[in-house]
């Protein structure tokens, strides 16, 4: 039988929807809801998480993320400028740094800062400082590459115009080039914050005092309670989404805004 292209597309779409609907129905009918509920959605266990999961764990996750983002952003900006420097040594150092910290797992960096450096140098950092340095230094490597791309995306004529007005190079960068670069990199930068939020969970490695628990550690602690099931982790996961989903929406909005001003 001969179908037009449009008819064929419609049939194909209907089949896809049909298959999906079937899968959902089968799952609902045959899943063991009692077990699932016990494992993931235990009401009593869920209630016990509050209010501490918000007032303590979510708050600490936000603090760890914010601290490391500050380090990551300033370090990243410095590295990006080094990478674009006319002095070759700066470029080499920046490249070395970026390749190293992008190449090793953040987990290893945490271990190094949590245990290696205190042993080697006999200094003991406060937990917040450790997180800030470990996570911030990893973030700096990623953010540096993002910012470098942004700085290079600003047309060369902008720097020339600023220099022609008598601005020294650093002033032209600060007042003219960097503000434009930030506008360009806002969407990818927001994504960096999302990654950081999740990576802040690695802090559990360091052995936290109860007041320092963040979402993942709090959730892991929660599941050790009798009859808790995995519900505390589900709640912790939901809390991450409370942070990351709005950030994702924000990133998309920035993206469409830059697309609009370009057109």
């Amino acid at each position: 039988m001969a179908m037009t292209v449009r008819q064929r597309a419609r049939v194909s779409r209907s089949v896809q929807y049909g298959l999906l609907a079937l899968a959902v129905v089968l799952f609902i009918l045959f899943a063991d809801w009692a077990s699932i509920g016990k494992a993931f959605f235990n009401w009593d266990s869920a209630v016990k998480q509050f209010p501490q999961i918000i007032t303590l764990a979510l708050k600490n996750t936000l603090i760890y993320t914010a601290l490391s983002f500050v380090v990551g952003l300033s370090g990243g900006l410095l590295l990006a400028l080094m990478k674009l420097s006319s002095v070759a040594v700066w470029r080499w150092i920046a490249t070395l740094y970026i390749e190293f910290f992008r190449g090793v797992p953040a987990l290893l960096v945490f271990i190094a800062f949590g245990f290696g450096i205190p042993t080697a140098f006999g200094v003991r950092f406060d937990i917040y400082v450790t997180v800030m340095l470990a996570l911030g230094m990893v973030a700096a490597a990623y953010i540096a590459e993002t910012l470098r791309a942004g700085l290079q995306a600003v047309p060369k004529g902008q720097l020339e115009a600023a220099r022609s007005l008598g601005m020294p190079h650093w002033r032209a960068m600060v007042s003219i080039v960097i503000p434009q670069a930030f506008k360009i990199v806002l969407p990818p930068l927001t994504n960096e914050v999302i990654l950081l939020t999740k990576d802040s969970s690695l802090v559990y490695l360091l052995g936290l005092a109860a007041s320092q628990y963040e979402l993942t550690k709090f959730g892991r602690d929660g599941i050790t309670q009798p009859n808790a099931g995995l519900t505390p982790l589900v709640i912790a996961g939901a809390c991450y989404l409370i942070i990351t989903v709005p950030l994702g929406i924000l990133a998309r909005r920035f993206e469409s805004r830059t697309a609009k001003t370009k057109g």
């Binding site: 047309p155 004529g157 902008q158 020339e160 115009a161 600023a162 003219i176 434009q180």
Partner: peptide, 8 residues
């Protein structure tokens, strides 16, 4: 400049 190069 030919391309103006105003600061956007």
């Amino acid at each position: 400049f030919q391309q103006f190069n105003l600061f956007p």
